[in-house]
């Protein structure tokens, strides 16, 4: 579909894109703008994107009312373990599935979709019973465990699609050179699915980093809690203290955004999750 030469179309495109994308981003704008108000101040009666006397006092309050720094560190440990493991296990499974014949590929696609059908609420209690049996309660392992299934069957699917686009000849020539499965995975496969890997990394990070159900159910000790629990505690403590609540939300959101910006420079942007590969 080649663009028309009439410049009106170009303007119309930008106008539509800015309106649509901008309205989605407004939620973040409102979050930041509210967090810059002084804690306890009366909300303005009309819409104000930049508050009168903007201050960072709400952020200071967020860190002093709660051991937020400690919680952020705990969250960082969990994603530090879980996200790399997710990438390894998801790409292993995806590679094996992508390499199967037509029948195996088909069966696994249905299996992955079937696994997506079971809701998290089905697991809460049953997983608790299971984790308690093997002494995992109050450790990081229940929080990290979803890495085994690649955080989400959908991410295995995304990677399997990407692997499947690599021409067979590439694998075969590497195999003739004596490469084993692990070398094929790390030297041939992974470099060619970098965009998909980047996408899964960002989405898996967001999932583990934002998880607030698992820590609430499987952790006990206060000093082991994660950052989303801090926000939950603040909400329960005072639902009307909007500057402090939104400041905490901004702090919680920032790492995901930074990771996304970095991945977007190095591996993936939302315009592609695979590259065209020529044999």
């Amino acid at each position: 579909m080649k663009p028309r030469h009439n410049p009106v179309w170009g303007w119309l495109y930008h106008l539509t894109a800015i309106t649509v994308v901008g309205s989605g981003l407004l939620i973040l704008v409102f979050m930041v703008s509210t967090s810059l108000r002084a804690p306890g101040s009366i909300p303005p009666p009309v819409l104000q994107l930049i508050p009168d006397n903007p201050s960072l006092a709400a952020y200071a309050r967020a860190f002093s009312d709660l051991p937020l720094a400690r919680y952020l560190f705990n969250s960082a440990v969990i994603v530090g373990i879980a996200v790399p493991l997710t990438l390894v296990f998801a790409s292993w499974a995806a590679l094996a599935i992508a390499g199967m014949g037509r029948r195996g590929w088909r069966i696994w696609l249905y299996a992955l979709v079937a696994l997506m059908i079971f809701p998290a609420s089905a697991f809460w209690l049953a997983r608790y019973v299971l984790f308690a049996q093997i002494g995992f309660i109050d450790t990081v392992w229940p929080l990290v465990a979803p890495a085994l299934i690649g955080a989400n069957p959908l991410y295995v699917l995304i990677l399997a699609w990407a692997f499947k686009r690599i021409p067979r000849e590439l694998w075969e020539s590497a195999r003739l050179d004596g490469a084993g499965t692990l070398v094929l995975w790390s030297e041939v496969g992974l470099p060619l699915v970098r965009p998909a890997l980047g996408a899964v990394a960002v989405l898996a990070f967001a999932q583990f980093w934002g998880d607030f159900i698992s820590p609430a159910l499987y952790l006990r000790t206060d000093t082991r809690m994660t950052a989303p629990i801090a926000l939950q505690a603040l909400i329960q403590y005072d639902r009307t203290q909007w500057p402090v609540l939104t400041a905490t939300a901004v702090v919680l959101t920032l790492p995901s955004v930074l990771l996304f910006l970095w991945v977007q420079r190095t591996a993936w942007n939302p315009g592609k999750i695979y590259e065209r590969v020529e044999a």
């Binding site: 939620i27 934002g210 909400i235 939104t246 996304f260 315009g271």
Partner: peptide, 21 residues
């Protein structure tokens, strides 16, 4: 595209809280 994708990675609890506001 980056701008359109960004809301997807806001932690859900923060996203829900922002909507309450």
């Amino acid at each position: 595209r980056s701008g359109a994708f960004l809301p997807a990675i806001v932690p859900e609890i923060a996203y829900a809280l922002a909507w309450v506001w």
